[in-house]
Design a protein around this nucleic acid. Structure first.
Length: 279
DNA sequence: TACCAGGGCCTTT
DNA sequence: AAAGGCCATGGT
């Protein structure tokens, strides 16, 4: 993978079918990236503001040093993983193949675990545009200001000190107390995110489920998107329909090691492809 | 107006 | 163990 500083920007030369920025950021695995003019995306990861765009043959990290691309962004966008090999393991299955052909180049982001965990607690019985609004308000009110528009995701320490009344105008609904419980458990050590990252998936799942508002589905999302457990398999209302429609005899065993990646392709496909079966 | 959205909790069988 | 009502909120 060739990485070069080009003026103020750093470029990574990679084909769009190996990594697709828009598909990766718009497929429902993250909620905070903002699409600007000419398909440029701006986001905050940890406390770092970054602007990224893509042409057919390169990813462009705006105003970014080569060393930061190597040490931060290659990891976040999972660019060091060989997805060609993963795709080869998955395309034996027709629905997955169709989904990949529809919107290829999706990579599972290595998101900060606390942010992903909270985000998917908020996601329950909620829709994506509204989830984005909730998280945006949460960051603007309790995160650290980066500039006029962009804020970091709040720390567990900040959130743990709040009362439900402080969260009234975030429109979280009944989920506000779940966020408080999550933050408090992280701060008092009852939940240790670093330890969960090292656990086997069964123990990790069990630990996450002790947080109020974290059931089977949210736990799988946290594992997949917050801890990069690509074998985790979240079943939401969309995937439930996919399983009924395509996989009456169960999800194929051969796809299990990358079930989370397959799931993300299928999720994005059935939600957004006009030609996808109405199920 | 009812139903839905990347569900989970609590109570009742 | 399984089923069903309820939980806030905004969009369609």
């Amino acid at each position: 993978m060739r990485i070069e500083l080009n003026g103020q920007n750093t470029h990574i030369y990679i084909n769009q079918n190996e990594f697709n920025l828009a598909n990766t950021l718009d497929c429902g695995q993250c909620f905070r990236w903002v699409k600007g003019e000419d398909d440029t995306y701006t986001g905050v990861v940890h406390d770092i503001l970054i602007q990224v765009s893509q042409t057919e043959n390169e990813i462009i990290f705006h105003n970014t040093l080569k060393e930061d691309v190597i040490s931060i962004w290659c990891n976040y966008f999972d660019l060091d993983t060989d997805y060609k090999q993963i795709h080869q393991e998955l395309v034996f299955d027709e629905p997955i193949k169709t989904a990949i052909n529809y919107a290829g180049g999706i990579r599972i982001l290595r998101q900060p675990s606390f942010e992903a965990l909270c985000s998917f607690i908020i996601s329950q019985n909620n829709n994506i545009p509204r989830i984005k609004g909730c998280i945006d308000k949460l960051c603007k009110k309790f995160g650290t200001k980066i500039n006029d528009e962009y804020y970091s995701f709040p720390t567990p320490q900040t959130l743990s000190k709040l009362e439900k009344e402080d969260m009234q105008d975030l429109s979280l609904g009944y989920r506000d107390e779940y966020i408080l419980d999550c933050a408090k458990k992280v701060v008092d050590g009852e939940i240790n995110l670093d330890e969960i990252a090292q656990m086997d998936i069964v123990s990790a799942r069990e630990a996450l489920r002790t947080i109020k508002g974290v059931g089977p589905k949210v736990a799988e999302c946290a594992l997949l998107f917050g801890f990069y457990r690509v074998e985790a398999f979240p079943i939401d209302t969309w995937i439930k329909k996919v399983l009924q429609y395509y996989y009456k005899d169960g999800f194929p065993q051969q796809a299990r090691p990358y079930a989370g990646i397959a799931q993300q392709y299928l999720f994005h496909y059935v939600r957004t492809c006009p030609d996808a079966p109405k199920i």
